[in-house]
Amino acid sequence: MHFGKWTLFLAVFWMLLSGYFKPLMLGFGVLSVVIVLVFLRRMDKADEEPMVISIGHRMLRYVVWLFWQIVLSSVQVTRLIWSPTIKLSPSLEKISVQNTREASRVLYANSITLTPGTMSVDLEDGEITVHALQKESIDDLKSGEMERKITSIWGENK
C-alpha cells in the first residue's frame, strides 16, 4: 500500500520532468523508479517512522489559508521597510508544541518561517524558538490559530 503510493508518485514525477513517451525513455523511467524504491526500503529499515504520503482536502485548505496569511504579513513587512523611520520591536520567545506529533512540528516551524515577520530559529524537544520583527506577531502565534489548523490536518497525538 505504502509502496504503491510511492510508485505512482514517482512515476508521475518522472513523466512531469521528462515529457517524452518513447520506449527508451520510459525504460529509463522504470529503472530509476525501481532504484529509488530499493533505496526507500533500505531507509525505512533504518528509520522508525516511515514517511507516508497523504494529501487530503484538509491539507489543500491549509495551503490556501497559508497563502493568504503570507500575503497579509508580507504587506505588513513591506510597510515597515518603506516607512521613513524604521520602528521595530524585535523579540525572541519560545513556543511550546508539546502535544503535536513530529510531522506537524516540522510543518509548523516551516510555516512560521515561510510567513515574513516571524522565523523559527531553533526546534528542539517540544519547543520552537521564534524570532519576530514585532511583538504582536508572536502574540498572534501564541493564540494558537495556526497550530490548531495544523493539528487538524493529521489529527492530535499519535
Partner: peptide, 24 residues
C-alpha cells in the same frame, strides 16, 4: 526585500526582509 537587506539594523531582522522576496 532587497531594500530591506540594507535598511534593517541587524542580521536577524535582515533575514525577515529576505524572506519577503523569497516567499511572496
Amino acid at each position: 526585500g532587497a531594500l530591506g537587506l540594507f535598511r534593517f539594523p541587524d542580521f536577524f531582522t535582515r533575514v525577515h526582509a529576505a524572506s519577503v522576496t523569497e516567499s511572496i
